[in-house]
Amino acid sequence: MPDGTSPLLLRADTDGGVTTLTLNRAASRNALSFAMLGALQESLAQVATDARVRVVILAAEGPVFSAGHDLREITAHRADADAGRGFFDAAMTRCAQVMQAIVGLPQPVIAQVQGVATAAGCQLVATCDLAVASDQARFCTPGVDIGLFCSTPAVALSRAVPAKPAMEMLLTGEMIGAEHAERIGLVNRVVPHEELAAATMELAARIAARSAHTVRVGKAAFHRQRGLKLDEAYALTAAVMTENLMAEDAIEGIGAFLGKRKPVWRDR
């Protein structure tokens, strides 16, 4: 992966095939400005084609994971000739593209949530494949409080948690704590704040130790089958498993299991 760094997005490569992308606008509460979304989009595109990257961690600097869309930027564009409609459409489209890029990324993405994640910031957490949260993390979708329902965050939220908890968050805009977020399935686990980075990296390293080919096949199939009817989902995944069985890593993995030895992955 290239070593270049965006002024808005600090990218750090780490050992073991784990790449960390860190939102780096702490002074602006890591708001998802149009430029920030563009930086994320660019970095995700680079990661997607880098075979060395096996897992991605999405982290953030400062006390806030992300406050969502940049409301100051949005307000400034109300002075545009079209009262901001063109910019709003472009911003929401770009945000949707970033969220879909995370889902479509070949590698699993783990959110490392150290603080508050609101609105589209909460959407970002819900979109990631996994999430590890500090015990100081909090979450909400407060658009209803400012007359702007969190409709796009609802897409990710409703796919990450059951309908009723999702609707409660969307309709009340109230903040929930990390333990509540874990109970409803918004995050996978909650750890002491000082252990967050280590716990997230430990999870990432365990995934990175698996066959990259198998993990990529599995992630893609998981997301594809979710939108299908039951019979279609089984037809899809049966075909995927058949193809997976033909892969070198499946042959190696099954052979290693039967031979009671550690597999040597070739990632193909």
Rank of each mutant, 00 (worst) to 15 (best):
G115L: 02
M92D: 07
Q123W: 01
G104S: 13
S158H: 12
A67G: 13
A90F: 06
G147P: 09
V191C: 06
V113T: 02
F139L: 09
P165G: 07
R72H: 14
N188K: 02
G86S: 14
V103F: 04
Q100L: 15
G84P: 05
G104D: 15
A120P: 01
L157T: 07
E168Y: 05
R94P: 02
V187W: 01
D82M: 03
D89K: 10
R159I: 05
H193F: 07
A111Y: 03
K164H: 10
H180E: 07
I74Q: 12
C128F: 08
N188P: 04
L124H: 07
V155A: 14
R94M: 13
M175Q: 14
N188C: 02
R159V: 03
P106M: 12
P142E: 09
A101M: 02
C150N: 11
M167Y: 13
R94W: 03
M99W: 15
T118H: 08
E73C: 11
L171S: 12
P192V: 05
D135I: 04
A133E: 02
I74L: 15
M99A: 14
E73K: 04
P153I: 12
H69R: 05
I74H: 11
R72S: 07
H193I: 00
D145K: 14
D89C: 06
K164Q: 09
C150I: 03
L105I: 03
A154Y: 11
P106N: 10
T75E: 14
Q107G: 00
R94K: 10
S134A: 08
A111T: 05
R183S: 12
S151P: 04
T75V: 11
D82V: 04
L186K: 00
A90K: 07
A119P: 00
G86N: 09
G185K: 07
T93H: 10
G143P: 03
T152M: 04
A81R: 14
P106G: 10
H77Q: 15
H180I: 06
F139Y: 12
P106Q: 08
C128W: 02
I110M: 08
A120E: 12
A101T: 05
T93Q: 07
V190C: 06
C122P: 04
E182M: 04
A166S: 13
T75Q: 10
S134M: 06
I146E: 05
G104P: 10
A119H: 14
D135M: 05
G177E: 07
G86Q: 12
A154D: 09
R189I: 09
P165V: 02
E73A: 11
N188G: 15
D135N: 15
A131M: 07
S66Y: 04
C128T: 14
C95V: 11
M175A: 04
T127V: 07
I184V: 14
G86A: 10
D80Y: 09
M175Y: 08
R189Y: 12
G185W: 14
C122R: 08
C140R: 06
F88E: 06
D145T: 15
